[in-house]
């Protein structure tokens, strides 16, 4: 009985440490000045759903490219570069520049548009 209380305290401290692990990854996906809702509307208006399954966008159930469900949790982007805001914005602007063999074309998204779309994609957990 004398050893249970310290062990419980140790367990509690360990749990608190571990629970802090998720926060760091989420804050690394922040994009200053971007509007995720505007990004969602852009995804709908460009019809990205023709190729991708995109949660939150009506009619987006394409199977040409990978599903974007859970996109925010992925480590790599297009199997090529780390899934970070700067890379994602670069990818959305010109996919063939990062992967010359990709089937995904550039649809001509402007700078602010790429940031808004990226912000929306990072809400897909």
């Amino acid at each position: 009985m004398r050893l249970v209380v310290p062990r419980l305290g140790l367990l509690g401290a360990l749990l608190l440490l571990v629970s802090g692990c998720g926060e760091g990854q989420r804050s690394a996906h922040e994009i200053a000045g971007a509007d995720a809702e505007r990004g969602r509307r852009l995804v709908a208006s460009y019809a990205c759903g023709v190729c991708h399954v995109v949660p939150g966008v009506a009619g987006a159930h394409g199977t040409v490219g990978p599903s974007l469900a859970g996109f925010a949790g992925r480590s790599y982007l297009a199997g090529r570069v780390p899934n970070e805001p700067t890379e994602l914005v670069r990818w959305l602007a010109d996919p063939p520049a990062i992967d010359p063999e990709t089937a995904m074309p550039s649809v001509g998204l402007g700078g602010a548009e790429t940031r808004d779309v990226a912000a929306y994609l990072y809400t897909l957990r």
Binding site: A47, V50, G62, T63, V64, P105
Partner: peptide, 19 residues
């Protein structure tokens, strides 16, 4: 069915039967 842009054209060509 879809707005005309390079992306939708490519997607249509690749997978018209799914769409």
């Amino acid at each position: 069915s879809f707005p005309t842009n390079v992306g939708t054209l490519a997607g249509w060509i690749a997978d018209a039967q799914h769409l």
